[in-house]
Design a binder for these strands. Sequence first.
DNA 1: CTGTTAGCGCTTTCAA
DNA 2: TTGAAAGCGCTAACAG
Lengths: 336, 336
Amino acid sequence: MKNKQVTIKDLARKLRLSVSTVSRALRNLPDINEDTRRKVLELAAGLNYEPNYIAQSLINKQTRIVGVIVPLIATHFFSNALSGMNEVANEHGYHLMFCQSNENAQQEAEGIRQLVSCRIDGLLISVSKQTQDAAPFLKLQQKGIPFMFFDRDLRHVTASRVIVDQYKSAFKAVEHMIRQGRRNIVHMAGPKGLSVSDERLRGYEDAMKKYGIPYTSKHIVHCEKFQLNALEALKKLLKLKPDGIFAINDPSGVIAINYLKQTAYRVPEDIAIVGFNGDPVAEVVDPALSTVVQPGYEVGREALKMLIRHIEQKPPATEKKVLEGKLVIRGSSKMC
Amino acid sequence: MKNKQVTIKDLARKLRLSVSTVSRALRNLPDINEDTRRKVLELAAGLNYEPNYIAQSLINKQTRIVGVIVPLIATHFFSNALSGMNEVANEHGYHLMFCQSNENAQQEAEGIRQLVSCRIDGLLISVSKQTQDAAPFLKLQQKGIPFMFFDRDLRHVTASRVIVDQYKSAFKAVEHMIRQGRRNIVHMAGPKGLSVSDERLRGYEDAMKKYGIPYTSKHIVHCEKFQLNALEALKKLLKLKPDGIFAINDPSGVIAINYLKQTAYRVPEDIAIVGFNGDPVAEVVDPALSTVVQPGYEVGREALKMLIRHIEQKPPATEKKVLEGKLVIRGSSKMC
DNA sequence: CTGTTAGCGCTTTCAA
DNA sequence: TTGAAAGCGCTAACAG
């Protein structure tokens, strides 16, 4: 029931040729009779022969499989990144093996092990918010398996990465509110220690400093579970009577907008809100949420392109590609 | 630079054992000295040995890789389905090889070929809206590769499938509007020939018939590109002065809501709107969009569970699992 | 131009 | 309890 797949040997037998001749014909190598080749190709097509990449891999020592690990796939940013990777994979004849860490460092480490056992040629990873331990990555390095970070990285690990400039994007977002006259801006921050939230926080702080706007540690409340904790964070922050909110992501921004509707605050008149990501919800909420649109698709494309370079040309020094987020101003922060 | 990976042979050499002994030790087979096993396991751990699944596959004739093809990954439903599959894959020691067809039948066929060459143990597919040709699936069958449809299927292909009852869901959605007193309900339909849009259309029609509400072919406008054509479809339909709109999906429903704001129509007073899917945007738009929430995560889980049964226990007759969508009534259709 | 041989990393008889 | 040999499907020298 299992072994239905046609092999090169089957072709050879039926054609009374040797397997090596068939192999060469199939791969369009030179030194072969045009007539033989034709016959082989015909039979192969007729029998629906499909080369066994698995067997080839064993010899070539490359599978043309790339592993991808994301914290959560059901997300605008990551699903778009995967979509971009899919495109590049098609262009270059690679395959994507996918794995979700669920924001859990252990699952992530196990995912890496599994992918290694599948002999992936390289790995693209956006780390979970828990991830601290560099060990899994060091192992990858000593095994000579190229890998790189995209979006969320581990700062202390030397590796290439493709990221969106979180710092600058956050800075722009906050600066925009300041320029609109906001002076008491708070930040619904993300999990501590996660590269992207740290950078967004830094952008917030530097923008405040640059414009000489005072803020305290109370102006920043971390949502360790992102939007799951957004409401409580928001309520704490409202005690400061803010006139601007910089939210760690769009779902949190949306939560803020909707909660404020139940209060006396008006958005944007009393409080401006800016989110982050470019999720579809941001366009749809009322008022529409200003946000930094991250080029997820491009991040995916660039990350895989870079990884493939590393795989195929071996040792280019570690690279770092930084893409730009685009501040899109909408009703939630614009005084018209 | 490449061959850094430790093999069973390396272990054998260092331990002055034969490869077969090492192999047995690693797999915890009986008939082996406890002491030898311990030594092997220790060295393996020390050297970060990882079994080569590729090599194993060649022998076992199974890779524990499952292929997944979706039309578009950056979608609430499909990314959730993938997430569910990921969970089941982890539970059962399988790996997911991912591929996006971009709603294109050719890319889909090529994806299938590629996955076959990777010797996947089975395939989970939600077909593109273009897909008509059963040939790729017939080939799969004659090769003895189990596959099944999830969500979008090809009616004339005999295979197992896991779907959400589109007909019933659509029926409930339209019935709900009728019960609210709507009598001139139109349908922003999906691409013709696509299983899910056909079924939703059928649900619309049957609900109208059941309640004896007349409708014409003008009440139905197909959006061949889903929400990309939604606005033109909507404008056509508005000529009929409808009091209810059943939209093929939530993005289309959102487009309708937002467009109607620029007109004299009020939602839901003049026109009720119900969408389909359960996308996050539906909750956020104002008024919130009633919709049928589809259990994407569950569909993914059930589909992979069923496929694994088919892979491991071989020939269970074709199965069909039908999950239920849940009508969630919100402001866009509720007269309070 | 074609066939023979060896081998990729691992498992599986079959002997020892 | 261990080892030797063969083979999975394919490629890569090397002869002929």
